[in-house]
Design a protein around this nucleic acid. Structure first.
Lengths: 336, 336
DNA sequence: ACATTCGGTGTCATCGGTGACATGGCGGAT
DNA sequence: ATCCGCCATGTCACCGATGACACCGAATGT
């Protein structure tokens, strides 16, 4: 039950622990005879090397820390999966944690990652507190941001061109004829939110459209926040004719609010959102969305991290900007 | 950069490492003066105890292994989140891995868990190979299954009453007037699939309805499998008037096939599925679903594991059967 | 024939904490 | 005053694997 140790194997094979290690890791040559004795001893004892001991001895855990806002959010699930697939291919495992965008929880998670000496961390969530993150980065821990990065942290990021993507989406609405647009945005402190809002504003400005201040809602993230924000938007007088949502959860909440208000999409109001979901094509009406390549973002992030780990000289890797995909469906139409 | 060790702290505070440990873990009493010196040394050096070393020394990693079929699947995401929330409350972290229902990948994941000496594992996926799992269980590693369990493994499980839930759903369809039902099931080797199919069959049998063999499709899991299975069902002559889907992904695929075939739900065919999704209420038409309490399942699983870890005497915990929720929406109607 | 090299193997300190045990000092009981 | 006991603290072996180093014997070079 207790699991055999390398000493047990060595004893059974009549060799030293060093020889066992050598056979196992195939590093230095070992005579065929001893190799044979060792491998059969390993098999007989069902010996499994203790990764904890190895980690302590080698100073490497082969663990990647992944900090997300909420692993239950399909977007982060995809990211996690992409990261995991790249990680396992390199014999790494993934330690995940959800921060819920709570600064305290985020801090505890990072502290845990540090204490466990994960080899590198990927972050997709960030409660503003970048001091903590900078301290971790300063220890030399390879680090990569996904989807967003606090302004003052000197680490690479994997993201899409949020400004351009939002600009394009907003232009699409404007070309449809909308002149009174609203945006359900994220917390102002979030870099992504600022970028998307900027793209939105630029598109409006370029067409001489004024965005009413009350048409920009900085909702709390999550479906409930989206619902509340949409309720407020619908109550506006005049009511905006098109709404752009900052992410998938917000959109789900917005959808609920629209339904509850008895408003039809796109007849009564047009809706467009960041983050595609597998069911969007089947919603009534199919939802137009800006799809982020979540899986690839996770994979790229892992690639950056693994690369940094294998070449410790350490030039800071460049950001990776992935293409987003604007998927036009039927949730937007010209205003009445 | 390299991180201070307990010896550095001890040296700076002018005490022994044991005293530092005692101050940190608050176990045995330490004089105020020394406590003071130690805490300030800890602060000055920004000392963070090395969890790897502690794990090796104590034989506990405070790590829970979670094996899911696919962390990108929202159902498993919810499970993971529930498990995580319960875990962090007890100062545990979660190591996740996706098996993709691939026996080899599952085996490697379990081997990694074992090598890392996680304190316990939760499994929601199972490629039939239970020998491997039994071997792990035999080492005394606390273990819990979520959603499904291989028949011959003596470990507790957290699940819903699949047979009853499916029976109820099938009855609902029958009471609507359907007499020709189909089921898009999962792989026969999966216990859950067998149970759900049994409930389905019992409901039919009780009403004197014969289920045509070709109406039970054992699809490959995943949206693509669901689409293929549904395409086959739609091609049947006569075409069944109602279909019950084994899980959320299968349903998404089925939805796509129905759309592609130009068939209307529920007018042309009724659809009902296991696993609810946040967007189901907004789909055209809103999808009737059997909701599993995924988050709670994760939490219960963690509770069982943590309990087993804190009371090592080890009575085998009983299964936890959670209620499912049958959410009737509009995707089912009487047959024409 | 002797020095040199090298392949194959063992020894042991080390990674950072932990806890059993040893030690020393002080107060209270007799 | 003496002994006991307890509290506070230090010492050190240990968890399991690793790798630097030492070592031995055989093959090669001159």
């Amino acid at each position: 039950m207790a699991g055999a140790s390398i000493r047990d194997v060595a004893r059974l094979a009549g060799v030293s622990t060093a020889t066992v290690a050598r056979v196992l890791r195939g590093t230095t040559p070992v005579s065929d005879q001893l190799r044979e004795r060792v491998t059969s001893a390993v098999a007989e004892l069902r010996y499994i090397p203790n990764a904890v001991a190895r980690s302590l001895s080698r100073g490497r855990t082969h663990l990647l820390g992944l900090l997300v806002a909420d692993i239950a959010n399909p977007f982060f699930g995809e990211v996690a999966r992409g990261l995991e697939d790249a990680a396992v291919a390199a014999e790494y495992q993934v330690l995940v944690g959800s921060s819920d965008l709570d600064a305290g929880r985020e801090r505890r998670l990072l502290a845990a990652f540090e204490a466990r000496t994960v080899d590198a961390v990927a972050l997709t969530s960030t409660a503003a507190d970048s001091a903590e993150i900078n301290r971790l980065a300063a220890t030399g821990m390879p680090m990569v941001f996904i989807d967003r990065r606090p302004a003052d942290v000197p680490a690479p990021a994997v993201l899409i061109d949020n400004e351009a993507a939002t600009h394009r989406a907003a232009r699409y609405l404007i070309e449809l004829g909308h002149t009174d647009l609203a945006m359900i945005s994220g917390p102002r402190s979030m870099a992504t939110a600022a970028q998307r809002l900027a793209g939105f504003r630029r598109a409006c400005a370029e067409s001489g459209i004024t965005v009413r201040p009350e048409c920009v809602r900085e909702g709390h993230l999550g479906a409930a926040g989206g619902e509340a924000a949409m309720r407020e938007v619908l109550a506006l007088d005049p009511r905006p004719t098109a709404v752009l949502s900052f992410n998938n959860l917000l959109a789900v909440g917005a959808l609920a609010a629209v339904r509850a208000a008895g408003v039809r999409i796109p007849a009564g109001i047009s809706l467009l959102t960041f983050d595609d979901m597998p069911l969007f094509p089947f919603v009534d009406p199919p939802i137009t969305a800006i799809a982020q390549p979540a899986y690839d973002m996770g994979r790229e992030a892992a690639a950056i991290l693994l690369d940094a780990l294998s070449t410790p000289d350490g030039v800071r890797p460049a950001d990776v900007v992935l293409p987003s995909d604007f998927r036009i469906r039927e949730s937007c139409a010209p205003p009445r």
